[in-house]
Amino acid sequence: MYGEKAIELIHELQRAVNGSLAPFNEEGVRQVLEEMKALYDQNQCDVEATVQGEKDRLPAVQFRHTCLERNKRCLLAYLHNRLCMIRDMRWEFGSVLPAEVKYNLSEQEVQWFTKYNKSLASYMRTLGQDGLDLTQDRSPPKSLYVEVRCLMDYGEFESEDGSSVVLKKNSQHFLLRSLCEPLIRQGVLEHIMS
């Protein structure tokens, strides 16, 4: 009561630091809304009573009002932050969300995601001649080639020109960035600065 549930939602957000989204806490949100309703109703009672002439209800009303504001703020923060994270995921993962992530979104969030997708896509289509995919190469690549170290035995890896590289644990290579990026993201290769 009195904002405790709301704080729990915020705690949840805090815990989801790694970019992993916790499941949408329907229950928590619902409880906060119920609390708000309860507070509002109580306030209504008290306001009516004050209008009727009772004097000492004002602090209580003030208090409940503050609580209401607090709850509202927390809820909004919860929803807003989740949406921000979902938006970032679009840039990170692409237009298709991995199943585990989707599982954790509420229906409205999913709808929002689809809409965001659509607007982003239509915007990107207007750029350049055939459209430009902004979500690739978000930071300007400093070099065409990168130095990478292999973290595990991956085996042979074919590049576009047909030549193959043997990726064995602890070997170090200097290869095309575009070739290595997916492997870096998968954790097979590690980028080495020199």
Partner: peptide, 16 residues
């Protein structure tokens, strides 16, 4: 050698 090759974008594989 690595540095020289990197500057010239020569791909290599390094094995100790």
């Amino acid at each position: 050698l690595q540095t020289l090759l990197q500057w010239d974008h020569v791909q290599y594989t390094l094995v100790p």
